[in-house]
Amino acid sequence: MGIEQDHNVVQELRYFGRVTASISHELKNVLAILNENAGLLQDLCAMVNQGQPLDVTRVQKLSTTMQKQIGRGDKIIKRMNRFAHSVDHDCESVNLHELVTIVVALFERIATTRGITIEVMTGTSGVTVKTNPFALEALVGTMLDRLTAEAPAITRHSIDVSSHNTMGQIRLQGLVKQVHTVARVLDSDDLKALLGALHAKTDFRQETGELFIMLPDNITA
């Protein structure tokens, strides 16, 4: 295995690890809420057994909260499942809007902790490219992670996709104040290796704070 391939494997595994750690953390929070609500139900039952009246409104509220958290957990697991299956094929047709949406959703917890908001814009939803889905998720996710690691709190970014000539294009906006960070991130060896594996290019426009990732419509062509 060459050095460049080594970089890719390590980078992709690191990304996989970061995402699964973040998902497990979020699921732990769901379990913690369910645990407290179930515990409070037990407390209320114990109080009824001691002759105190049952607060039906409180019980209904607890039930609503528990259903809401089960829905939240279900969404997290669906996302995780989708992410897990992105390693199934080395090359397949990928809808860029769907891929970006899932990467941003997986990154949401980390972004919130950093006080960062990333909004996926509607853009052009029908852009597809034939590429390595997991390597592309690792590229976009790692870029988001590094670009927002030093961003000032309460920063808003937006991301959208489009097509330009025969290339698929992912655009991240809101980087005007992070010119040096962008330069450093784009200069890192592991990201360069991922870009190379995807035959992708980047273009950073300092004056507008836009970063473009340009992908060939077919990586095998």
């Binding site: 929070n29 913690a32 407290e36 515990g39 409070l40």
Partner: peptide, 12 residues
């Protein structure tokens, strides 16, 4: 920051 967790824990 998980309000539904922390408020219920406080109640208990």
């Amino acid at each position: 920051d998980e309000k539904e967790f922390v408020s219920t824990l406080a109640e208990r």
